[in-house]
Design a protein around this nucleic acid. Structure first.
Lengths: 298, 298
DNA sequence: CATCGGTGGTGCGAAAACGATCCGGATGGA
DNA sequence: TCCATCCGGATCGTTTTCGCACCACCGATG
């Protein structure tokens, strides 16, 4: 008899394209994936993959099997969401996925409040950066900034939040030094994968020199605080930071609209309802900050 | 993450209504089913069953889960049949040789199952009695009862199966009549070429009169059913026959060990591997019956 | 040409799952 | 009533599985 769980390993390997990547995603050792796939191939009596030096590639047989593996996965997800949706108790696990800056600079205190308010809810904040998939039951609630509503997955239920604006920021003392006539060039600080948004202009302060690149948002913010230059930041980050100031003359720009996303059955759960309503209220209170209206321009 | 294979155990328990029956069907220990279901319930965070003294009954949550478990099973079946149907090398002839009683009284339903599972395999059951020679390519697979392992041909690849025991049997109503004091002598029924095995004693029932001889095993069994006397039979024949009973006081005796024998090149072919693995699993499930443990001694 | 990060594959010791076995209790007949 | 036969559950060695540390190999990169 085929071990159904082997199909899960097969599916991961088929998605990731290599045994090691699949193992990383599954949170197990790559040798385990290797063995489970070998076992599945043995029990099915057919090769699912071509074992290339560059990784695993599906054979024709594997392609056909993949279709039914997806079916099994879909049923498995339905099974889990169904039983989760039945759970009306406040106790239990609640997994929230959101962008790291939202967690670190805005909502973490509110999450803490919520956790104190409901000690029986085990909270799991997934802000590693990857978009957790609600349909795959990797999270129960997603908080995302969406620019075009049409890009929202149609199977998710969305609760609309405030709009998010961003601006161009620089360290306060750096700005003062520039006004005092300091000659050092002011550089653009950008996240490597992003580049300089086309809407960002340097305002009255001219940017010069080569860009300074960081890999993540936190390093970017620290770099700006150090006075290396200026960068684009969401207003709720820049305006809330006492060490930063907006670059005069630089315009704000709408990043998008915040959405609280929930999925199918889990939406009915009491703890999901409690959480979304709680966060929705807090977000409404943050609306001016998010829109960049919390400070007067200078 | 939920272990998909746990769903398989859940499904079996839901179908059978008890952990032990599910374990029997799955061919595992009942403690295993117990653990897997407990694990599934823990990971889903909900009870699937009411644990009644009379067995497991599905809860409302379990009923809902059952539907998707069925979906997973259906996908799993499709997955397996697809990969089997895809495998061109499964087509072809498969010749199996085994002793007639094994075919007639034990394995024929399993052969039928295998044939239904693999409609493209043309099966040839050689149970005429003569020992087909694997080395001479008269058969692809041999199922034999071997007493001394050293008598196995060294060039054959053997897959060891359960041990086979035999006992002394008599018709139930004949036994009852004897207990009631019927004066008719109880005769030994033997196959002409065999005689009475030296390990066979009449137990509490004394044997009298001349032996009754038959030429083949089927006639021997029919004769015993008619109440002519008692005879030695493999337990999987005698215990499975509702008209027969063991002679009280007569001991069991080991006939030997079942072996699944394959030869050289044919062993590598898919249909041979499929068949041997299939039969091996079935044989493992028959182990208690073959060992004479399927009924309590009387 | 050396290095470095990626791949699949392989032994070995630790850890988890398993099977065998026993137990207490419910249940249905003799 | 007593006994046999189910049931779920707990315990205890044993087997299987897993994670870890390696290895060889390939390709890109400096």
């Amino acid at each position: 008899m085929v071990d159904w769980d082997d199909v899960r390993y097969f599916l991961a390997a088929a998605r990731e394209g290599s045994v090691r990547a699949a193992a990383k995603r599954l949170g197990v050792n790559h040798a385990t994936v290797l063995r489970r796939i070998a076992q599945l191939e043995e029990r099915l009596g057919a090769q699912m993959f071509e074992k290339l030096p560059s990784g695993y590639r599906l054979t024709a047989a594997g392609e056909e099997v993949l279709e039914f593996a997806h079916q099994m996965e879909a049923s498995s997800h339905l099974l889990e969401t169904r039983v989760f949706g039945r759970d009306e108790s406040v106790r239990g696990l609640l997994r929230v996925t959101l962008a790291p800056p939202l967690a670190a600079h805005l909502l973490m205190p509110d999450f803490a409040d919520f956790a104190r308010l409901h000690p029986d809810i085990e909270m799991d904040i997934l802000s590693s950066g990857e978009l957790a998939n609600l349909t795959n039951r990797e999270a129960d609630v997603a908080i995302r900034v969406v620019y075009d509503r049409k890009t929202l997955p149609p199977n998710l239920h969305g609760l609309k939040g405030p709009e998010v604006f961003g601006g161009v920021y620089i360290a306060r003392d750096r700005l003062a030094a520039w006004r005092a006539g300091a000659p050092d060039p002011i550089r653009w600080i950008v996240i490597s994968s992003h580049g300089i948004p086309d809407w960002a202009s340097a305002g009255e302060v001219g940017a010069a020199g080569v860009p300074f690149r960081t890999t993540d948002a936190e390093a970017q913010i620290v770099a700006v605080r150090q006075g290396l230059g200026m960068t684009t930041l969401p207003c709720f980050v820049g305006d809330a930071d006492p060490l930063l100031a907006r670059v005069p003359g630089a315009d704000l720009h709408m990043y998008g609209t915040l959405w609280l996303l929930t999925q199918g059955e889990t939406r009915k759960t009491k703890r999901v309802r409690l959480f979304t309503e709680f966060v929705s209220r807090r977000l409404a209170a943050y609306a001016p900050l998010l829109a960049g209206l919390s400070i007067s321009r200078d």
